[in-house]
């Protein structure tokens, strides 16, 4: 049994610990897109983790480099730009305010880690759910093809 819970990413409640019903409620709202109703920015994922932002790669632009897709200005040679893990690059002054607002790349939506525990938990569960779906699909295919 323990393995099953581990696989699902669930942790048993400690003695005297109550389930975090607020978290469950928040998840329910997210799943049904209810944050829309509650306010404009509520559904945006939280800001990128401070550590991840601090450790972003940088590079010096050469002449051949293109433009920053946030301000649409062309890079000048020698200018320092920040590079996200997805390899999209931006001016520091352009990408940092965005990452303070939400954790994804403005071009491809690649997600950076966040400092928000609830959101990270929610995201882990989403990924697991997807994996499970793929596994079931594989199983199904191997059984019926």
């Amino acid at each position: 049994m323990a393995d099953y819970f581990e696989e699902m990413g669930w942790q048993p409640l400690a003695d005297g610990e109550a389930p975090d019903s607020l978290l469950h409620f928040a998840r329910l709202l997210m799943d049904f897109g209810m944050f829309d109703v509650l306010g404009e920015d509520k559904k945006l994922p939280p800001p990128a983790a401070k550590e991840a932002v601090k450790n972003l790669e940088e590079k010096k632009c050469s002449d051949a480099d293109e433009k920053c897709t946030i301000c649409l200005k062309e890079y000048t040679a020698g200018e320092i730009v920040k590079i996200l893990p997805c390899k999209h690059d931006f001016h520091p002054a352009c990408i940092l305010p965005w990452l303070e607002k939400t954790n994804s790349c403005p071009v491809c939506r690649h997600e950076l880690p966040t400092d928000d525990e609830n959101y990270e938990q929610y995201r882990k569960e989403k990924i697991r759910a997807k994996q499970r779906e793929a596994e079931i699909e594989n199983l199904h295919n191997s059984m019926f093809s």
Binding site: F35, D36, L44, W98, S104, C105, P106, V107
Partner: peptide, 10 residues
Amino acid sequence: LRDQWAAAMT
């Protein structure tokens, strides 16, 4: 125009 907005959109 809501939550799926990204700064790179125009």
